[in-house]
Each structure stands twice: as C-alpha cells, then as structure tokens.
C-alpha cells in the first residue's frame, strides 16, 4: 500500500516535469498516432493486391490486426518504457534505481510518462472495433468474454516480450536496437494470419514462442472459423494461459538479469 503511494508520487513528479515541455509533448502525441496508423495501413495495402491472403479475407485478417494492435499498444503504454533499460545499463545509472527501496521494473516503467502513447491506444482500439463491426460475429457469452480477455492477454504477452527484449541489455550492454527488433517483429508477426508464414518459421514463432495465441487463435474463435492448421476451436481461449506463462518467464529472466548488472566504473 505504502509502495503504491510511492509509485503514485513518482508518477506525479514525472507528470510535473513532463508538462515543462508542452509543445514537444503535442508533437509527439501526433507523430505517435501517425505511426500506428501507418502500421495498420500495411494490412490494407496487402489485401488491395490480393483479395484473400493465407485463406483469410481482409475483414477476418483485420480481426487479428485489431487484437494485436490493441494488446500491443496497451503493453507499450504501460511497460513500454522498459526499453530504456539499455541506457541505464550503459551509463550505470541503474545504480540510483537500485539503491531505492522499490522494485526495479516499476521504477523504470514509470520513469517516463507515456501519455504521448495514448493516441496509439485510441488507434489500436479503433481498429479492433472496426474489425468487430465488419465481421458477422455469432455472439455467445464465451465470445463476448474473449473479446475483452484476448486484448488484455495480448497486452500481458507483449508486456512480457518488452521485458524480455529489454533484459537482453543486462547480458549484452551493446545490444542497441536488437531487443526492439524482436518486440516489433513479434507485433508484426501476429498482425497477419499465421497461415501466410513458412512451416518452420510458423512452428518456431507461433507455437514455440507462443505468438500464435495472441491474435490468430482468438480471432478464429471469435469468427467461428475452423483452424486451417488443424488446432481445435478452444485453442482461442488459451491466450491468457500463454500470456501468464510468458509473464512468468519474463519475471525470472528479469530477476536473473538484475543480478548480472555490473554497473560501470566510478
């Protein structure tokens, strides 16, 4: 409880220093929204060339894009700032974080106020709404629940990916943008029907790393479509479990990473 107040106070402090730069804030807000819109529009471009891709129509694929986008932006909004870890490790400024009586991850997450990412969130959710409206969904209680849980599970899953990618810096100080490539690559992977990928690539990313359960399988279940790859319909409901497993692994890797932190000479 007392810790929550500490985080709230830190967030408040962050807000006060962010408002000191009001113009740059507005500019960032707009460029961020633009970024997400561009990402999503690639799906339209792809379907403009071919009416059916990987056995799915544009409307169906949009469901996957929408689930991915809303889950991803939610993760980015909350834990996205963890990607700054590499700067903290490089400069040794994680020292100051470690001497405070608070957990490291929440401190890093709130070290920057991601209000500018709010627009991305709006764009992401809009895509999901459009996807729901443009498909003729046979609503059942299970599907209604899934429509809410799938983006949340997606957010947890992508949150875990953010943390895992960032943790790389604990072992590899000069990792640069490698972690980000993994995070954004994962998002792009789940934005499309996984049927478009080659067999081994799909096996590794969709099932080995679990990306297939973020959007593809929940979307199939929402749409009431059988999986062309043969998994049963309830696979769509696995996304929270997969997300929790990913979060657990990310937690372990993060803790191990913090103990690998070697600071810098001083």
């Amino acid at each position: 409880m007392a810790e929550l107040r500490a985080y709230a106070a830190l967030l408040g402090g962050r807000f006060r220093s962010a408002t000191a730069y009001r113009t740059s804030f507005a500019v960032e807000l707009i460029t961020n929204a633009g970024g997400t819109a561009v990402d999503v529009s690639t799906v339209f471009v792809l379907f403009h060339a071919a009416k059916v891709v990987g056995g799915f129509t544009l409307g169906e694929a949009l469901m996957m894009t929408g689930l991915t986008a809303s889950g991803f932006v939610l993760a980015d909004l909350t834990v996205g700032n963890v990607d700054q870890l590499k700067t903290y490790v490089r400069n040794g400024t994680l020292d100051a974080v470690l001497v405070r009586p608070l957990a490291v991850l929440p401190q890093l997450v709130i070290a920057d106020l991601p209000l500018r990412k709010l627009m991305r969130f709006v764009v992401g959710v809009t895509v999901l709404v459009v996807a729901v409206l443009s498909n003729d969904i046979d609503w059942t209680p299970g599907r209604a629940v899934l429509l809410v849980t799938a983006p949340l599970a997606g957010a947890v899953f992508f949150g875990a990916i953010f943390v895992l990618s960032a943790s790389l810096a604990f072992w590899w100080v000069e990792s640069g943008e490698v972690g980000a490539a993994f995070t954004y690559g994962g998002r792009d992977f789940t934005s499309y029907p996984i049927t478009v990928y080659g067999t081994w690539f799909r096996a590794v990313f969709a099932y080995g790393l679990g990306f297939g359960f973020v959007a593809y399988h929940p979307a199939l279940t929402l749409l009431g479509r059988a999986d062309p790859l043969g998994l049963p319909a309830w696979a769509g409901y696995l996304s929270p479990l997969v997300a929790l497993a990913a979060a657990g692994i990310a937690g372990i890797v993060w803790r191990t990473g913090v103990r690998h932190y070697r600071s810098t000479g001083s």
Binding site: R5, A6, A8, A9, L10, G13, R16, S17, A20, G92, T93, D95, A96, V99, R100, P101, L102, S266
Partner: peptide
Amino acid sequence: QRSQLWWDLPLGESFRLLRYV
C-alpha cells in the same frame, strides 16, 4: 559521481518525493 535526485524537478520537490519513496 551519480545523482539520486530528479533532474527536471526543483530540489524541494525531489525531497518531497523521497518522503513517499
């Protein structure tokens, strides 16, 4: 060599935050 304070905040504000931390 390394600051524990919040770079963009007034010193007094940093102290206030530390009370919560």
